[in-house]
């Protein structure tokens, strides 16, 4: 009986993994296929990858994506960490209110956030790299707060007071005593923000205006014109990069379950 149940559970798991990863696997295979056809295997090639790196359009989009990801993640990390420290110091009621508000952008449908931000930006700043950056910082902040918060909660506040007691100013005590304790949470928040930014399509699409393209919006634009195998190669690379970041991120927070919590809440 138990064995049967186990076998069933294993099949079920295999099925889920198959559905999740088979399409990606096909995509990866196709990116090495020396034939434009999606059904015949024309031999192994790296030429799509080669073309990828000779296309100015693609390289520009790559540059935009990386710049956007790093800048928005960095800004969100600073703002989010300070925010978390502030929220942690709040009284109970304020704390609950702010934490609920923090969750809204995560639970909110991207398209709503995207359109809302677009409407907002249209009046204030010209749509372009700047507006996308602000949009990305905005939706990244909650992820940073959520990954820093558990670390702050488990922080023993008397070590901060001990530092002050021994002659440290508040800034020194924060950087030398508090930061090392919550550093892994901050780093995890940064990586989370980075992936979220690189992953995003909807919000970017609505806030970017003409002329600016990240990889995801560019792929979308290209695919409407007809699928080019270069796009397979590009998607494969994108997948690989995000996969590596996620691994690093999990390794960082491997000891605590915090990040799993955060991911759980964000999905």
């Amino acid at each position: 009986m138990v064995r049967l149940k186990n076998a069933f559970m294993r099949c079920y798991l295999a099925f889920i993994l198959l559905f999740l990863y088979a399409p990606i696997f096909v995509l990866i295979v196709l990116s090495f296929n020396d034939s434009r056809s999606r059904v015949t295997w024309g031999g192994f090639t790296l030429k799509w990858y080669g073309r990828l790196f000779s296309s100015r359009q693609i390289l520009e989009a790559l540059e935009t994506t990386l710049l956007l990801g790093l800048a928005s993640a960095a800004a969100a990390t600073v703002i989010g960490t300070l925010g978390a420290v502030g929220i942690q110091a709040m009284r109970k009621r304020g704390y609950q209110i702010v934490m609920s508000v923090t969750n809204i952008p995560i639970l909110n449908a991207d398209i709503v956030t995207g359109i809302a931000l677009m409407l907002w930006f249209v009046r204030l700043i010209p749509l372009g790299f700047g507006s996308v950056l602000v949009a990305h910082i905005t939706f990244n902040i909650p992820y940073v707060i959520l990954s820093v918060m558990p670390k702050l909660k488990s922080l023993n506040l008397s070590i901060y007071e001990a530092a002050r007691d021994l002659g440290a100013g508040s800034v020194y005590a924060f950087f030398h005593i508090v930061l090392p304790q919550i550093g892994s949470g901050i780093l995890a928040g940064f990586f989370m923000a980075l992936t979220m930014s690189m992953d995003d399509f909807v919000i970017t699409y609505f806030t970017k205006g003409a002329g600016v393209n990240t990889l995801s919006t560019m792929i979308y634009g290209e695919i409407r014109k007809g699928i080019k195998p270069e796009m397979y190669a590009l998607s494969t690379l994108l997948f690989a990069v995000i996969f590596v970041i996620l691994l690093a991120f999990n390794a960082l927070s491997g000891k605590g379950k915090n990040t799993e919590d955060v991911i759980e809440r964000s999905r």
Binding site: N156, S158, I159, A162, R164, D165, A168, G169, I177
Partner: peptide
């Protein structure tokens, strides 16, 4: 401010810097 007082504290909770 506390850091300017010629007073030091031993806290109830363990407060050594863990790192």
């Amino acid at each position: 401010a506390s850091e300017k007082r010629n007073v030091n504290t031993v806290f109830q909770k363990y407060s050594l810097f863990p790192h």
